[in-house]
Computed example of a mutant assay.
Amino acid sequence: MSSLLSYLEESRAALDRCIAAPQLAGHVDAAIDTIVADLLAHRPLLLCGNGGSASDAMHIAGELVGRFLLERKAINCICLTSNAAVVTAWSNDYSYETVFARQVEAYGQRGGTLLGISTSGNSANVVRAFETARELGMNTIGLTGQGGGKMAALSTVLIDVPSKSTPIIQQLHITIYHYLCEQIEIRLAPAMDQLPAAKAG
């Protein structure tokens, strides 16, 4: 039976592999550069994922539309998993496989960015969304597990964390996208009417 200590050791080992992965930091920095450039050009950041990754997509949108650490104006970010009417109507009447691609058609802009989250990199609806985004001339950022699956070939920037364990991948994703949110906020701050950081209540 697994113990908490062994699970924490496994989690720490995965973080150590991230630290040792020479390409990971460069890919994360490239993703930040891409997202910031698009946001400065007034193009929205689109996000999608399934299950826990849907929650992660909503989490990122919450941090950017709301705030992460700085008091600032809202950041233009749309989570494609959040509109229950769109998701259920399109999935019921047409196909769950195209539910994100349809919304990319609605909200995507040439030169904009779609960030898709999938632990396997093979989620059919995220893959289809990436295909549509590429057809529209958008940037695609894949946040996946090791190797990137089918999303690897469709990603402008691939952030594939060095693990094949779904829960460990999701933990690494949280760490990475918190850093993304922090850096996006810092980079955009000079272009916004920034106020001093609020004190915790």
Rank of each mutant, 00 (worst) to 15 (best):
L136A: 08
S118I: 07
A37Q: 12
T113M: 04
A198Q: 08
K150R: 15
T88E: 10
I184M: 02
L80I: 02
L115E: 08
I168P: 00
Q170E: 10
L69K: 14
A189M: 02
A25E: 10
D93M: 06
L143M: 14
K73P: 10
C79P: 13
I168T: 14
L24F: 11
G145N: 07
A57M: 09
P190F: 10
I159L: 04
G66V: 11
I184Y: 02
Y179C: 14
C18K: 08
V65P: 00
A84T: 15
M192T: 12
V86W: 13
G121D: 01
A37K: 14
R128H: 07
L80V: 02
L46Y: 13
G52M: 09
S91R: 06
T144Q: 04
T119G: 02
I169F: 02
A101H: 06
N76M: 12
L4F: 13
E63V: 11
Q171R: 08
P190V: 14
R102F: 11
C181L: 10
G149A: 04
G148P: 06
T119I: 12
A133H: 08
P196Q: 12
V28W: 00
F68M: 09
V86S: 15
A189K: 03
Q103E: 11
D16A: 14
G121M: 13
T81D: 07
T98L: 12
C79I: 10
A21D: 15
A152H: 08
A189L: 07
T175S: 13
F130K: 02
M58R: 08
A133C: 08
V161T: 15
Y179E: 14
A101L: 04
L158G: 05
C48E: 10
T119W: 11
R134P: 00
G201Y: 12
E105D: 15
Q194D: 03
I32F: 10
L64W: 10
I186M: 14
R134V: 09
A37W: 05
S118T: 09
L40K: 15
F130A: 09
H42W: 01
A89L: 05
D193G: 14
G116S: 01
L4N: 09
M58H: 00
N83M: 04
V86L: 15
L115F: 11
E105R: 14
E71V: 14
A85F: 00
S155N: 07
P162A: 03
D56V: 09
T81W: 07
S123Q: 05
K164H: 09
A200C: 12
A106M: 09
R128D: 09
E97T: 12
G26A: 11
I19G: 00
V87D: 00
M138P: 00
E185Q: 01
I176C: 03
S165A: 11
I176W: 05
I169Y: 04
